[in-house]
Design a protein around this nucleic acid. Structure first.
Lengths: 232, 232
DNA sequence: CCAAAAGTGTTGGGGATACACCCATGA
DNA sequence: TCATGGGTGTATCCCCAACACTTTTGG
């Protein structure tokens, strides 16, 4: 190996050593059985093998962050069109013991029925966890979760994002419960209905849902598309 | 050069070619002469030479994004402790004609008196520009500016960040003007004073500021530290 | 005494909150 | 007929917005 090549090689190595790599991690929320849940995966190798973390992967050279997050969501849930939003970029120098990796966190909201967890050779395991029963997380993912929860709560209060957590048809009680679960507070039924209906975002469909007792009216969102409006 | 080395070299190259690099860009706001201004630099080389853009640079291997942004701010203004907040990460594949670079945008608020623009060999020029008179910007920096303005306006309405745009002592009229400049709307004087004083964030100091006519009371923030509160 | 900016209160409306009872259905 | 969740209306409060005149100073 010639001296010239040695130098070139060293230069390239330096470039790698001086440049943090970038990854995307996705915090995927759903509501099921009156519980707010997230997807965690079990790390397959490296010093953190066996720990739980959010699904995530390096950003490829030809894809945007949004695309990377959407890919990650799809590969784990088979969901293609969920609500997906960039959260924050995490960059502690020591956050990943393997190397210098900056992680751009994303927030995803999916409805439980559509989300089919897909086991992947990349992970040892993948599961839904209630937000209230989270194991110790790898990296700085606990912090990431806190950011995500904060953002979710805020977003709920000034937008209609909650539509993405619910099935197409739902009762007003379902909707109220979803709000209560995420915001972690009781809401007055009458005030809730007044407010929601006055926003004109949902419409009745047909009177089903007579599981027992008096059947409830079913509603659906007029537009299943993110929009900002005063909600609570 | 042996075959083994060739392969190794190729592998390293691939690693570079497959990994987007990460940079930080800082949108630095100030208010001067009743005008909202930002710092722009003129690009020194490459295909975008001569165009204006936000100051920014690659993230070093040993620094966090916050540190990189603070460094960038310091190198351009000599300011060490301004309000600095991560905005958003931009990642279009073609945003930089030179290569694949993801940019994490930061928002900085400085007061004009403290900010001494420092010419750097990295740029052809550096200047304050009124937000209303911005030249065509390089990269996706126009979009970045829009995000920054949006964030600034929102932040103003639910926090005390504006302290970082003002000198230590100011009159209520100064404060009101700053709000009006950024929010781009007239505010009623009596309602403004009622609201601001009720928040208990500022206190009187001494009655100066008698430039002409009736002298105004000077105020200062009780805490020059970011905090969230309902404002407007 | 005049010009210019500083300073000061009251009123009305809208949205949020608090609160309790009747209704429809299945068993 | 009863148990269960579905569904409805009113009174109050507080925050925000609208609005105009007096005060203090320098020249």
């Amino acid at each position: 190996m010639g001296k010239k090549n040695k130098i070139k090689n060293k230069k390239i190595r330096n470039q790698i050593n001086q440049a943090p790599l970038t990854a995307v991690d996705v915090v995927i929320f759903t509501v099921e059985e009156k519980i707010l849940k997230i997807i965690l995966i079990k790390i397959k190798s490296g010093p953190l093998k066996g720990m739980w973390a959010f699904p995530g992967w390096r950003v490829k050279i030809h894809e945007t962050l949004d695309k990377a997050a959407a890919r990650e969501l799809y590969e784990n849930t088979t969901i293609k069109n969920a609500y997906l939003e960039q959260l924050y970029s995490f960059s502690s120098v020591k956050r990943d013991p393997v190397g210098r990796i900056i992680s751009v966190a994303y927030l995803a909201l999916v409805n439980f029925i559509d989300a089919k967890l897909k086991t992947s050779s990349r992970y040892l395991d993948i599961r839904w966890f209630p937000v209230e029963q989270i194991p110790r997380l790898a990296y700085d993912h606990k912090e990431m979760l806190n950011h995500a929860l904060e953002r979710l709560k805020n977003k709920l209060e000034y937008s209609n994002v909650i539509y993405s957590l619910l099935p197409r048809k739902f009762t007003l009680s379902d909707l109220q419960k979803a709000y209560e679960i995420i915001l972690q507070k009781k809401i007055d039924k009458r005030n809730f209905r007044k407010k929601i209906l006055s926003l004109n975002l949902i419409k009745k469909v047909g009177e089903k849902r007579g599981e027992a007792y008096r059947p409830a009216n079913l509603y659906s969102f007029k537009k299943r598309k993110f929009s900002v409006a005063e909600i609570f």
